[in-house]
């Protein structure tokens, strides 16, 4: 197995040219190394981009927040810009695995792994994240949904790398709550990401993305429509939870813990709305 280790931005295209269908990118290795040990992955080459300084950085670029694909969960969670302007991303990053995992695991890896339970994915959808991608011949940009194809699959060529994640300005209140099998160090069974803009006591607009209930994060448009112009009282929130329950009942197969998810949506939806208040 070959190791491709570009040290500078300029060295990346050269490395990408050497990658084949069997090659893999490695971020923190928190998934790939386990797969390799279990014999489930045997790449001919692994490419690690973490030595490229620009890809570790989180910085403001005019109206965008640019997050290098090699930024770790811990770095994202602790970044002041993220905490102030993209708190749902902080929520999601802070709840990934254990501290040891968060110190290694990267945002690029979370996208690249494309797990239906990927913690950051619903939040990246929530904020309309744009990915900056480099191929051997140049750089392009695409929305997160164009790139995410399904479980473990991306619409990227084998020699294309995610360099940066760009978040447009966010308005309103946002939050993310995940429900796992226990409180911490757990894999998401439902992840709810919310963005709300208020007009006085009334909801002007809501965006609701739900993770771990489909092959990609699901946008719950029916709930978004329902709440428009209404207040955020308990009954309305319970009704949103009921919309999520109905969706799960219809769309999730029984062996993916459907019955539990149908029942438990109420709890996670209420928690997500509660967290919008940040108190």
């Amino acid at each position: 197995m070959e190791s491709l280790l570009p040290k500078t931005y300029e060295e990346i295209p050269g490395c990408l040219r050497q990658m084949t269908e069997k090659s893999r990118f490695i971020g923190g290795g928190t998934d790939l190394i386990i797969k390799m040990r279990m014999g489930l992955a045997a790449p001919d080459a692994i490419c690690y981009l973490g030595y490229v300084r620009e890809l570790k950085e989180i910085r403001r670029e005019e109206e965008w927040l640019s997050i290098g694909s090699c930024a770790t969960m811990t770095e994202i969670e602790q970044d002041p810009e993220v905490r102030e302007h993209y708190p749902a991303l902080m929520d999601a990053a802070a709840d990934v695995g254990s501290l040891q995992i968060r110190n290694n695991g990267t945002i690029g890896g979370n996208i690249g792994n494309a797990s239906p339970a990927g913690d950051l994915l619903p939040v990246l959808y929530l904020y309309d994240a744009v990915l900056e991608i480099m191929g051997p011949d140049g750089v392009r940009r695409a929305g997160i949904d164009e790139i995410l194809a399904g479980p473990g699959r991306l619409n990227l060529a084998c020699n294309e790398a995610i360099l940066r994640i760009l978040l447009p300005p966010s308005t309103g209140y946002t939050s993310f709550v995940k429900l796992g099998s226990r409180k911490k160090v757990t894999i998401s069974r439902i992840g709810v990401a919310l963005r709300i803009e208020m007009d006085g006591d009334y909801v002007k607009e809501m965006k609701m993305m739900v993770g771990a209930i489909g092959i990609k994060p699901v946008r719950l448009e029916k709930a978004e429509e329902f709440i428009k112009g209404r207040t955020l009282n308990e009954q309305n929130i319970l009704d949103i939870a009921a919309i999520l329950s109905d969706y799960i009942r219809e769309h999730v197969a029984k062996e993916f813990d459907r019955d539990y998810k149908v029942f438990a949506s109420r709890g996670v939806v209420m928690d997500a709305f509660h967290r919008l208040r940040r108190d």
Binding site: S181, D257, D259, Y260, F263, A264
Partner: peptide, 10 residues
């Protein structure tokens, strides 16, 4: 487990 408890409550 949460699943057992939720099934009971359901």
């Amino acid at each position: 487990t949460p699943d057992v408890i939720c099934a009971y409550l359901d």
